[in-house]
Design a binder for these strands. Structure first.
Lengths: 179, 179
DNA sequence: GCGGGTTGCGGCATTATGTCGCATGGTCCA
DNA sequence: TGGACCATGCGACATAATGCCGCAACCCGC
């Protein structure tokens, strides 16, 4: 019976993110195939013909957009979600034109990802709690991400985020942030 | 001979912008048809079968997205550029999925517009813009996404986002937000 | 025509944010 | 070793944003 569960391919060069996402998807009863490189991704796609895929755009500098077509060729019925930490309207338009099913900016939770991929693959009876992240939570995640990219440098992070250092400081200290 | 010039349909409810854009396009030797309402637009499209169109998204209240399909039906070989002052990834993705040829944020000059309407895909020129979104921008995108998930229902969106409806309203109208 | 939902908007009381400024501490380098 | 340079923590305070009323106007199904 588990073989009837939909398969999903996760392509992301960040092992941590990759793993977390894979886990979360498995908990939703999906059969997950994870790849960290384009070749790996193509191999898995050919082999398993997943019906869904999550594609990160920055695979070590390689544009994930370039993977889009090969991936679709390898697994023609696969709905591909492009996910990126450096989202922009331009790449979104490109991605969709190239055949991506959807496009999301990166601080995104599993529910949003599945929602963006269309249809909840689990049992139809559990729909109600598909709550999107609150703005606060989203902001928090984003800040943390940029902060770590900036090696914890608060000033640099503030600049990158175009927000005042004072404000960032205040946000950082005030929020243990729950939800 | 002028009949050999390509025709372009301009749809925008703002008479000023409409006129300015029309003029600029005429100066590029295009035959311009301008419309300020959906009906007008459809009429002109049927009548002239333009090969290009510029469609503004907020036709005072009416979503321009709703016009996309009828417009394509009316003039099947028309390449449609969606142009909006309230650009977001969510609407961009929708527009392209609905068949728009391209999508631009509104402070856009004529050259960009014509380039975007070009027959060939715009260059995937995205090595440099590897910069994280500002918090503001991210918030905007997130709001737009949830809003579209909620079919444009502001109250429902506010609830889903756990933010006050009043605040959401204010954010929605205040932001053209560029980046 | 009524109850229930959405929407736009005016008006506060409260918070959060933008901005300065200053003291502290770390690094790099001549 | 004395600076030049930068990051950090924090106080203070004017300004802007938010939470939270309440109301009038609609739309819609019954």
């Amino acid at each position: 019976m588990p073989d009837r569960n939909p398969q999903i391919l996760v392509v992301d060069d960040d092992p941590v993110f990759n793993r977390i996402l894979a886990r979360a998807l498995e908990q939703r009863n999906l059969r997950v195939h994870a790849a960290q490189t384009p070749d790996e991704a193509l191999g898995l796609a050919k082999q398993f013909q997943p019906e869904m895929a999550v594609l990160d755009l920055n695979l070590n500098g390689q544009s994930g957009l370039a993977l889009l077509k090969p991936l679709m060729d390898a697994s023609p019925y696969c709905r591909i979600l492009v996910l990126t930490g450096y989202a922009s309207i331009a790449t979104a338009v490109e991605a969709v034109k190239l055949g991506a099913h959807n496009y999301l900016a990166k601080p995104a939770d599993v529910d949003s990802i599945l929602l963006a991929l269309g249809r909840y693959p689990t049992v139809p009876d559990e729909q109600p709690p598909a709550q999107p992240m609150s703005v606060e939570r989203l902001e928090w995640e984003h800040i943390q991400r940029v902060l770590s990219e900036q090696q914890g440098n608060v000033s640099a992070t503030a600049r990158a985020l175009k927000m005042h250092r004072r404000t960032l400081q205040r946000k950082l200290q005030k929020r243990p942030v729950k939800e």
